[in-house]
Amino acid sequence: MKSLQDLEDFIKSKENFRNFRNYSDVPPICRSEACMLGVDEAGRGPVLGPMVYGVAYCPIGQNSVLEALGCDDSKVLKDTKRDEILTKMFTEDDSLNNVGWAAEIISPNYISNSMYKRAKHSLNEVSMNSAINLIKDVAERGVNITEVYVDTVGPPEKYQAKLSEIFPNYKITVAKKADSLYAIVSAASIVAKVTRDHALKVWQFQEGLDIDHTKFGSGYPSDPMTQKFMSEQIDNVFGYPLLVRFSWSTAEVMLKEKAAACTFEEVDDEGTTKKPTKSISSFFSPKKEGEAKRRKSHKFFAERHLSVCNVFE
């Protein structure tokens, strides 16, 4: 990967309803020397587009390379500045020789499907699994990881305990706003954020909608462009194109109002089917006419959803 164009071409070559990963080459020095690795995510909140997990790593004590790239506090950087830094990571010798990275693009369809499983899989679980798998992947590629720094939005203690259990040999630090505290997390955050921005930029609708990212905005529910997209691009039967995370309340509310009602069977927390409970008063009210007369269908037919219809001639 030599340029942002290469990044866009790579993203375009992948099916956007599945997850995929993107890796830099491992700088040889990262195999021999002890490395620190930063983890951060981009696009957790938006109702549109993928969530991207990014990791960056370099030998401990190479903070000067990261600082030279300009990754000190990614949140205060402008989009163009972030693009510039990632381009440097793709091309400049000093960075290529010391800093490696990897990213996982988690498709909006994967997010909806996970949250709408019979036994729900929360966004936190999706996130944590992505981070864990990226770290494992990088280690498998031969990177000598000794320290891991993770940015989190939730309470750090639980996350830290879980990671320490999985990776007992690494020194793990989970912190809020880690991207402004550690340059390596800031680098990871740039990888994630730029990848997400470009994934949105090159999004192609399988559904055949002839619109691009300038018409759907940032994906944040507060963005007027996103709101317009969410209220206009509704298919009566299918709801939304798979750019949308169906499991977001913004999408749920809008579909309830503007698309055909769809009812899946209800399941309880254990993932089994639940029958609606009759209200107690229903036992006292008189039977409706016709209901009492109709013979109950035999179990054989009821199980198969078979009933007697009219005769065709």
Binding site: Q206, E207, V237, P241, A261, C262
Partner: peptide
């Protein structure tokens, strides 16, 4: 249960 009758964009969606 989909409360709609008629044509649907099955090919595209």
């Amino acid at each position: 249960k989909i409360e709609a009758d008629g044509a649907a964009n099955v090919d595209k969606y």
